[in-house]
């Protein structure tokens, strides 16, 4: 068989990343480079998408890998997927930067719809793709405005105030849409 089974390839990519993180926890610089090579495009994409500022995204990316260097020992493969664990560090760092900079996010309206290209998705396991599919299914089942707002908050780092302005509704209305949306989202994911 010349072509690798996609599921096996994804599992192998995941295992490779878990092993590299394990070595990073033991202060192995070469392992951090392996993690970087495997994930920097994904994490830079997150930093850039949320900060919407190339220079800032580069600074955030540096901080992200320094955080990974320091936190790798806390990664628990039995509780989290390595790639989403790393992505969450990047997203949180970018959001911290954005909140500290006091900037209003200026991502384009349709940016929330942009999705990862297929090449970068090749490493995802079937299970990961199913989980992503399920949360999208649950978000699609919400009131459309709540779903749009939740996606914009997640992918563009928009705050309540940004969302209220963007969607031209009072802040209180936005809060109640999202709070209700989150409650229903939770129910849907638990039913799934």
């Amino acid at each position: 068989m010349s072509e690798a089974d996609p599921a096996t390839a994804a599992d192998s990519a995941r295992n490779h990343l878990v092993a590299a993180l394990h070595d990073v926890a033991r202060r192995d610089r070469a392992a951090l480079r392996r993690v970087y090579d495997l994930t920097s495009a994904k994490l830079f994409g997150i930093c850039l998408r949320i900060s919407n500022d190339r220079a800032a995204a580069e600074d955030i990316l540096q901080d992200v890998y320094i955080k990974i260097w320091n936190r790798a020992g806390r990664f628990d493969a039995s509780r989290a997927s390595p790639i989403t664990w790393l992505c969450a560090i990047a997203r949180n760092a970018a959001i911290d930067w954005q909140r500290a900079s006091g900037r209003v996010a200026t991502a384009p309206e349709d940016a929330a719809l942009a999705i990862a290209d297929e090449r970068l998705r090749a490493d995802e396991s079937i299970e990961e793709m199913q989980e992503t599919g399920r949360i999208h299914h649950c978000i699609d089942a919400l009131d459309e405005r709540a779903g749009t707002a939740i996606r914009a908050a997640f992918f563009d780092g928009l705050t309540y105030a940004d969302l209220a302005e963007r969607m031209n509704v009072p802040l209180g209305t936005m809060k109640s849409w999202i709070r209700r949306g989150l409650q229903r989202l939770k129910g849907c994911l638990e039913d799934g």
Partner: peptide, 21 residues
């Protein structure tokens, strides 16, 4: 919310980023 992270599109990081890290 974690599975949503997989939908972020990748962007090639600038080559000097690793040097800085």
């Amino acid at each position: 919310l974690a599975p949503l992270h997989l939908d972020f599109a990748g962007q090639v990081a600038p080559p000097e980023a690793w040097t800085a890290i």
